[in-house]
């Protein structure tokens, strides 16, 4: 393993566990304890950690924003699959809206082989992921009031700005779907935005991981027949699969077998 890669690994382990000891690090990374000590010293100079007797502790206060940019490991796969499937519906030369939310971030990561695609978004995280993973796509970030915890933009300015567009396709993150209340999202602002964008798009997809089905979120967007196409994971409850098929709604479930 290259030294640089090893440092990254150590950082990962520390971020996850907050602390680590030299012996187990040496075992997992398959190098000698002396090497690990030297690595820890380097990282201490970067103020990433503080060395202790026989190990190291993460400097917690150094990375408060890390929770926004990195995602929980165990849920990444389900978002990734949704993002991959959704990106299949983006054609070259299109203007696409990516709504605020985690699923949209993964759509933005899968645009590397598209030509002349313009992404309009109100989520700074989506813009961040797009420029990091798919730098070939043009990004337009709508202005507005900033929500400091989610880094999403909202408000009158945002709505006015979006109304100048007509999107070929819109992808909208949904935070809860129930048969009775339909689609709901985590804030009123997001609900307004979603309804607004639906009017401005030729085709809209609801993106929703399977564990958000049969869950109600804070603000209602519309009833269960609002979207014509839904993208989710293969584990979604059978009752929804059946309902959607009988009510002529496309349900994409992200199998990733081969």
């Amino acid at each position: 393993m290259l030294p640089l890669k090893r440092l990254e690994e150590i950082k990962d382990i520390l971020t996850k566990n907050k602390q680590a000891d030299v012996i187990s690090l040496a075992q997992t990374l398959n190098v000698t304890e002396a090497t690990i000590r030297r690595d820890l010293e380097k990282l201490e100079n970067e103020h990433f950690l503080t060395r202790t007797h026989g190990g190291a502790v993460l400097n917690e206060s150094k990375h408060p924003e890390i929770s926004l940019f990195t995602l929980q490991e165990d849920s990444i796969e389900r978002y990734q699959n949704i993002g991959k499937i959704a990106s299949q519906f983006i054609q070259n030369n299109e203007t696409v809206f990516l709504g605020p939310g985690t699923c949209s971030r993964f759509v933005a990561r899968n645009l590397t082989n598209k030509v002349n695609v313009t992404i309009v978004t109100t989520d700074m995280m989506v813009a961040h992921d797009c420029s990091l993973y798919s730098p070939n796509a043009a990004v337009i970030l709508a202005g507005g009031n900033l929500n400091p915890t989610t880094l999403e933009l909202y408000g009158q300015t945002t709505d006015n700005f979006l109304e100048t567009f007509y999107f070929s396709t819109a992808f909208l993150d949904i935070d809860g779907i129930t048969m009775a209340r339909g689609y709901s999202v985590s804030s009123l602002n997001k609900a307004f935005l979603t309804q607004n964008v639906l009017k401005l798009s030729k085709k809209a997809f609801a993106l929703c991981p399977y564990d958000r089905f049969d869950v109600e979120s804070y603000a209602t967007v519309g009833d269960i027949n609002l979207f014509e196409s839904v993208i989710t994971n293969e584990r979604v409850a059978d009752s929804f699969k059946e309902y959607y098929f009988q009510h002529k709604i496309q349900l994409f479930a992200t199998f990733n077998i081969m």
């Binding site: 299949q88 293969e234 059978d238 699969k241 959607y244 098929f245 199998f255």
Partner: peptide, 20 residues
Amino acid sequence: DIPSKIDVYNMFNDLVLKGA
């Protein structure tokens, strides 16, 4: 049943996406 149908159709998608 219908839920399995939906699964089968989506598996078709996965198969062709992977080059089958």
